[in-house]
């Protein structure tokens, strides 16, 4: 089976875009979540804010995801 190299490169590019974005986002989310858990242990009412702060870091992964979609869809 012959596969066009362009498709492979697109898939690779999309994978790198989302992969590294998710990696960075994951590390950041881990730090934010662990700090959040510490804060909740001290003050339970901070639950909402802690969870929001942990979710905040995920934006970077979303950007990676958008780039990946754009690579797959727009680069013909």
């Amino acid at each position: 089976m012959v596969v066009d190299i362009n498709i492979g490169l697109k898939a690779l590019g999309a994978g790198i875009a989302i992969g590294f974005a998710a990696l960075g986002s994951g590390i950041g989310q881990g730090q934010a979540a662990s700090a959040g858990v510490g804060a909740i242990a001290e003050k339970e009412e901070l639950f909402g804010k802690a969870i929001t702060l942990a979710a905040l870091v995920e934006t970077q992964a979303i950007y990676g995801f958008v780039i990946a979609i754009l690579i797959m869809v727009l680069l013909k």
């Binding site: 995920e58 934006t59 979303i62 950007y63 995801f65 958008v66 979609i69």
Partner: peptide, 12 residues
């Protein structure tokens, strides 16, 4: 623009 793009999570 980042805030607007953040809504891409709906799709994600």
């Amino acid at each position: 623009f980042g805030a607007n793009l953040s809504y891409a999570r709906l799709l994600a």
